[in-house]
Design a binder for these strands. Structure first.
Ligand SMILES: [Zn+2]
Ligand SMILES: [Zn+2]
Ligand SMILES: [Zn+2]
Ligand SMILES: [Zn+2]
Lengths: 154, 154
DNA sequence: GGGCTAAATGTTATATTATAACGTTCCGTC
DNA sequence: GACGGAACGTTATAATATAACATTTAGCCC
């Protein structure tokens, strides 16, 4: 919910996310295969949203469809989100319950924070209803400066 | 603000948009050259968000940088918006005063409607402030079904 | 376990979107 | 009409994503 300290110990975050993913896949009867697990781990290890080809390189000997298929799986099961502005992917902080992706993206350090704010979704829904529009998915991406990077600005 | 009727006479919309663009460019001391004007007209003629390469084809004898440069100009002067989810562009309904792009995108017919709802922006700003984040630009893209397409669904 | 089936992965090629780099033309200014 | 910066032309290439089809793997029934 809040912005991650860039110097915090990220290991436990990754471990916790992987465990939650295992759990969620069990619950859903989905198979978190080795490749999918490795891609998810790489996504989490990265402090910033990471692109498909960066993942590909990190994986080593794979071809594009391999990583895109893994990403499709992780997206379908709500374990990651796609950042449309960046063509990049980031771990979901709240897997297991459906929610629209809402992100704060620091244009300085690249860090991303996931919001989970019902009032944003509500505001969009209300505005949409005024047009008779039925919302089925929602992208909210705010670009700006994280707390750490505001200090460093001139 | 409201969803456009797909059968309305679009000619006047396009003409009005081009006139408003001329006016806005005059005000800003910016040059709406022939290519830029043609790209803007093509964007407006399309009822749905249109991609750079579709514009390129419609232009005829141009190369990619030509259309991307025109799009950059139109974006910079607030005459069009980019739809991140679609890698496509759409005319701005309210040029001349700065605002974040907020769109309703019909997944059935492709139509797009621009919102101009302060409460959405406010909700994001408030949530961001709770994280100490300073928002400088905002993308809101809701996918779903427009009024016309809801009727046609099973 | 052995065969069946569907899912997952491997592999190759290609589509789609976007930009780098550099030369030329156009236009307002002096 | 020379100058200088903005706009445009042209070629090549980068970055992102998918199509199509072969092969392997994993769960399942018997
Ligand atoms: Zn999430
Ligand atoms: Zn930052
Ligand atoms: Zn607008
Ligand atoms: Zn529709």
């Amino acid at each position: 919910m809040s912005f991650p300290n860039p110097h915090h110990d990220h290991g436990p975050c990754v471990a916790h996310a992987l465990e939650a993913a295992e759990e969620e896949c069990r619950r859903r009867g989905a198979r978190l295969t080795d490749i999918r697990r490795r891609v998810l781990e790489l996504v989490w290890r990265s402090h910033a949203p990471i692109g498909a080809y960066a993942l590909l390189e990190a994986l080593g000997k794979a071809a594009p469809p391999t990583v895109y298929r893994a990403l499709d799986f992780l997206l379908a099961h709500g374990l990651i989100h796609r950042i449309e502005k960046l063509n990049a992917f980031v771990g979901c902080a709240h897997p297991g319950h459906a929610h629209p992706g809402q992100f704060l993206l620091c244009r300085q350090c690249g860090a991303a924070a996931e919001l989970n704010d019902d009032s944003i979704e509500q505001a969009v829904r209300v505005a949409a209803e005024h047009s008779g529009f039925l919302v089925t998915s929602l992208v909210v991406e705010a670009e700006g400066l994280c707390p750490a990077c505001q200090g460093q600005q001139a």
